[in-house]
Each structure stands twice: as C-alpha cells, then as structure tokens.
Design a protein around this nucleic acid. Sequence first.
DNA 1: TAGATTGTTAATCGATTAACAATC
DNA 2: TAGATTGTTAATCGATTAACAATC
Lengths: 205, 205
Amino acid sequence: MKIAENTINRLIVYKKELNRLATDGLSNVYSHKLAHLSGFPSHLVRRDLMNVGYNGSPAHGYNVTELEKCIADFLCTPESVRVILVGVGNLGRAILDYCQQQNPKISIVAAFDKDKNKVNKVYHSIYTFHIDSVKNYIKENNIDVAIITVPAAEAQEIASALVESGIKGIVNFTPVRLQVPAEVYIENLDMMLGLEKVVYFVNGD
Amino acid sequence: MKIAENTINRLIVYKKELNRLATDGLSNVYSHKLAHLSGFPSHLVRRDLMNVGYNGSPAHGYNVTELEKCIADFLCTPESVRVILVGVGNLGRAILDYCQQQNPKISIVAAFDKDKNKVNKVYHSIYTFHIDSVKNYIKENNIDVAIITVPAAEAQEIASALVESGIKGIVNFTPVRLQVPAEVYIENLDMMLGLEKVVYFVNGD
DNA sequence: TAGATTGTTAATCGATTAACAATC
DNA sequence: TAGATTGTTAATCGATTAACAATC
C-alpha cells in the first residue's frame, strides 16, 4: 500500500516523540498526548497509526516502546545507515557534527571535497577524501544515501556523478533543483526557501 | 484568497528559477521550461500562475523579469528583511555564512548566545549579543523572524521567549516540535527527519 | 493560416475530518 | 457499569489533473 509523504513525515515525528517519552520513563500514551507533542490533531494520529498495524487499548492507549518499535519496523528503519557527505564547507562541517549528536543510527562514514587543503583532513572525526574517489567509494561500500553541501554551481554535476555511481537518495542542501532520474529520491532542505516561506506567512496572509 | 502551502513553495521555486534565467540573459520562457527547471508538471505551473495574476502570451510564453516581479509582489517579498539568529554553534555559524552568500535581501542582523566566550564576538561579520538582551533587541528593532539553532534542550524555552517579545515566524533547526500560539508560523527544517525520510524512500517503497 | 501555448473550467483523486461502533 | 478511548468506515474538502476554448 502506498503511503503519502506527509504521513511518513508524521510517523517519523511520532517515532521521535515516543522515543523521548520512553527516555522520560513513560510506558503508556494516549493519542491526545502524542498529538499535542507532535502538533497534529489526535484523530489524524489514530488514522496514521492504522497504517502501521499496532493496536492500542481504550484503557491504556498505546504502549510507548512497542509502538515506537512498530513504527520503526514499518518504516524499515535500519539499525544503522551509512551515509556520505559531499562538500566540506562551513555548512558541511556543521552537519558532520550535528548528525553525530542527534542520531547514532545514521552515521556519516566519509566526507568528500575537491579542495586539496581539506582532503586527508579529519573534521568532527570524519575523514575527508578527494572528490575524485567518491565513485569508487560508493560502489565498494554500497552507499545508498548522500548529503550534498557543495556550492550551488557544482551541485548538478556532483549529483549526476553520485547517481551514476549508484546513489538512490540525496539530501540536497543547495538551492538548485537537481535533475535526476525519477527513481532517485531527493529531499530538498533549502534554508532560503524555508526563510522566504516564513517571511511570506508573517507578512502576507 | 487562501493559498496552499505547497503552492507557496512552488511559487518561491519559480521565482528563483526565473531569477536565474534573467541572470542568464533570457527574456522569455514557456511553462514547459519553467516546469522542467522546477521539477513540476507544466500544467501545474500554469495553474499556480493563475493565482499571481500575470498573463503570458501563447506566442512568447512569459516575460522572465515581469513574471519574477509579479510573483515577488504576490508573495509580498520585501526589498529587505531583517532576521535574528539564536544559537551560535557550528550550525548557527554556518547559517550566518550561508545566508549572506545566498540572498542579499534577507539579512541576519544579529546573533545571540548564552556562552560568554561567544558574546561580543563577530562571526561571518555578524555581531553576537548575550541571549538576555534578545527581548529588548526584538522590540526595539521590530524583528519579526528568528532562526533557532540552539541545542534541543533549550529550544522550547528560547521559542517561548521570542514569541513573548513579538516574533511572528521561526525557522526551527532543532528536532523539537515547538509549542507556540497558532498565529506564530513555524518552519521546521529538521535535518534528521529529512535524512530519515530519504532512508525510508530508498529502503522501503 | 496552422500550430503551439496559455488560461480556465470541470473531473478526478486522495488526504483529512467527522461520525460512531467496538472496546476496555 | 459508565466513561473515555481506540479503530474504522463514510463524508468532506481541497489539491492536482485533464480537457479544451481562447489566443497569438
């Protein structure tokens, strides 16, 4: 069954909130509370949870850890994912750091750059290789996902090279709309677009 | 008339592509081409453009600069927007840099942090103030939009303080779902969520 | 003109919401 | 039990797609 992208978004949010509730020591939660924490209406929470096939009880709501695991299974969340990052500028280095703090299951295993001053250096404990070696690295290590933080002008060229080497999903931090085959999944995290959107909703209607 | 958030997203993308076309020296563009560059179907482009009230011609398509201006007007894109950033960590500093490179119309005018080693320092030519002065700064300078790049544990407290001082829109880089009044617009740029989504679409269906 | 493109209305599709029976 | 909550079906709402007349 095909699930809408928005639903996937929300499931990931639920999973994270459940994880926090578990850390806080709570064992059960009602759809109300999960809804409040996530910022969505409670009936939408219940509707979304229909997809993952976990049943709560009217008496106690949902078991926090069981539901979290159930969502993780549904999303096929692997125990560990290896990701590469291309473009070790300010933003790239910040992301190298941020990822390690946030999620131990997703690890950036290598960085790439064309600048010889950065190659062979270690940033936030990630080794930086020359960009020319990225194709081999992807193939030899079976990497599926890449983060692109290169300058806008180089984004398309890099993306094409990554896809050619077998990359199936890209987190794109550049403002460029990447032209890739339909089967490659692109997540655009365009900060400027985000800012412009906020400006629109603050000024206009 | 109320416009869907997705439509706003796309209009912002069109605007950016038009700007690039103008830079490249093109004067006219057909919906086909704009669609290809943006990654949306051409009929959706035309449908979206109905909203902004600009008329192209069957013979020459759209005038690039006129359409760009028309979208900008529709989105109430101001000539300059002043934004503040709270949390001068690795990510915060990277964004201070990135914003200046990308969009001269949106400028970060001040940064704030609680760390005394960062206060009174200048990063990427932005001055850093102590977080205690943020409320006054917002009121005195009539700031509407803030970027939050503090650690997750501090995000909600900071957000509440900002909203209390009159902030109306927030770009939230933390993984925390902020609890704010409904009239405050929040744009969540959760990198981990982005990564998890890519992993889902790459692994699962 | 002929052919391609625009602008707009109508049709479709799908996500969200509402309603409510089942459950504890 | 009574009351609250879950799970699910049906209704609504709105966005996208399709179709096509108008235009250059």
